[in-house]
Design a protein around this nucleic acid. Structure first.
Lengths: 337, 337
DNA sequence: TTGTATGCGTTATCAT
DNA sequence: ATGATAACGCATACAA
């Protein structure tokens, strides 16, 4: 019930092979012939059957995006970057959630990917994640966003440096008792969090400052977690005068906790995040901005290049930028000891 | 180079037809035979070829999500709801951006959909949008999120009621000079915005209050736009004592503007939004919460039902809920006139 | 440059 | 309950 390549061939008075070649822009097709075919295809309102084309060619024209979250700012921003590039490349975007716990898909992402995509972009799955390992085992062209794995293309920031920048900024303002709000339990080796923590430690060590274990709180990468973590820090015997939250969203939660404790952000306690979340500007949050959308774009270009036969692309590391706002300021004289 | 149905058939000592039936769980297959086939398929690590299956069956097993934005809160939240349901139904999610201006795809969504999906979910495209019309013309099972079109399945809230609730809440607090921040220029008939405005007007009329044209500002559905709109309202000869922002994100921008003018939110000016954005709680914003994720879920179930042969599903309207926080409070005595 | 013919891996129809 | 086989619509190696 649909127009097929056969109809177009008949209408244009050529074989289906020529139509196939002409419509795909392959060389070795007479200009006049091509024009005639294209015109007929348009007139007949012909649309190629992806299924047939895929079956015959072996290519799916589809790239999967595997992500543990969809609605969180970082992830949706990455996805939007990916989508834009795929669209202009004429590739389909297969969105695949890889949540955990109750949000976990019934069947593993890797299994769901087999035979249906030409490449995969994995967003922010920890290097040790078994689902990531399974995806890599597929042997498909792959690119990682936010995580780096040796031998695999990836687009990341320098998380160690980001952690350093954030911490150093607080140190430069004279803070010595600095708290950290981490994404998840440190036991779990999520590279991003670990790296940012390392940056924190290095900055502290560089300034000759001790890292007090009671100044490390877990924020679970959520706003709520950030609020709880900050509350925990504030109820310590010696609260911090400044706090480094490893993500803006956790920083937002921290701001709430500070307000709840009647503390003025940036005056009583300085606060810095990482991300460059849209809301950071409106909440006057100092943060280390990372080019999230670009991470998605670059990873996408990488898989496209790989599909085209390109070799293993080198990992790309994009720069971050410190944006100072009102949430951080020099330590008050009376708080110094 | 991949295991095909033929290999499984051979290994199980049956025909490919039987394998196909067995693996799809069709009736009229001997239990023992089925078990044998399933076991062989597992042992051989057989994975069906979607392309071949789709070509032969005519079904794509894919549902497209057409959305003008991906990273904005409302949209990414809807998408996450859609993804979860599609996943559990074993359907693929084809994500398709339908931005405007520079983000506009080179070829129209409708064209990109043809022959590649079994159904479409369109998110928040205005009823008059030509791209929406084209998608509907495809004749595919379709469901709309956030917009209602006669004869088409949809999941929405009652926007008129939402606008009323928000406005009435301000009126109940004694406010009489109430401003509105709309999503886009009112000339453009975006049903959501128009409906919410109508709700506003009805509430005002119901209280015998006039609607001052200078109290209507456009916020472009963005944080920045909300800030500018609020600034515009504040610089009027007679600023409002309360403002209804048609989305939480615009309300966030409005909050920034209020702070910039050294006004205390909820005391100097009351502010209410619509959405139930994650950040609303942390910014202490009163808002009319809508079940965004559920909208996505329900629309998805609708298209799944339609794919299964179900008839036109009735439009579903989900309830909203007023959540009062610190951004709204009774009008100050001295502001009353 | 163009045409012929085969294969891609399933599904579904019709027998048996 | 199972098998044989013709579509499904296109890509591509091979001829011409």
């Amino acid at each position: 019930m649909g127009i097929t390549i056969k109809d177009v061939a008949q209408a244009a008075g050529v074989s289906t092979a020529t139509v196939s070649r002409a419509l795909r822009g392959l060389p070795n097709v007479d200009a006049a012939t091509r024009d005639r075919i294209v015109a007929q295809a348009r007139d007949l309102d012909y649309v190629i059957s992806p299924s047939a084309s895929r079956l015959a060619s072996g290519r799916t024209g589809t790239v999967a995006v595997v992500t543990p979250h969809i609605s969180r700012w970082y992830f949706s921003t990455v996805i939007s970057g990916i989508e834009a590039v795929l669209e202009s490349a004429g590739l389909d975007l297969l969105l695949m959630g890889a949540g955990i716990g109750e949000a976990a898909p019934q069947v593993s992402p890797a299994t769901r990917l087999r035979r249906r995509v030409d490449a995969v972009i994995v967003v922010a799955l920890p290097p040790g994640d078994s689902r990531l390992a399974e995806v890599l085992d597929l042997g498909l062209p792959t690119s990682l966003v936010g995580t780096a794995v040796p031998g695999v293309s990836s687009a990341t920031i320098n998380d160690v440096l980001a952690g350093q920048m954030a911490t150093q900024h607080l140190i430069n303002f004279g803070h010595r008792r600095i708290g950290v709000i981490t994404g998840r339990s440190i036991e779990e080796p999520m590279s991003t969090g670990r790296d940012r923590l390392r940056g924190f430690e290095e900055a502290m060590a560089g300034a000759g400052l001790p890292v007090d274990p009671t100044m490390v709180a877990h924020g679970n990468s959520t706003i709520l977690g950030g609020e709880q973590a900050m509350t925990a820090l504030l109820t310590q015997a010696q609260p911090p005068t400044a706090v480094f939250a490893m993500s803006d969203e956790m920083a937002f939660g921290a701001m709430k906790a500070l307000r709840s404790h009647d503390m003025t952000i940036g005056r009583d306690v300085s606060l810095i995040g990482i991300d460059g979340h849209d809301m950071a500007e409106y909440l006057d949050l100092t943060t280390v901005v990372q080019p999230v959308k670009d991470l998605g774009r670059i990873a996408t270009r990488s898989v496209i290049a790989q599909i085209a036969g390109g070799d293993a692309v080198d990992p790309v590391q994009l720069p971050t930028q410190l944006v100072v706002r009102g949430s951080t300021s020099p330590i008050k004289a009376e708080a110094r000891r």
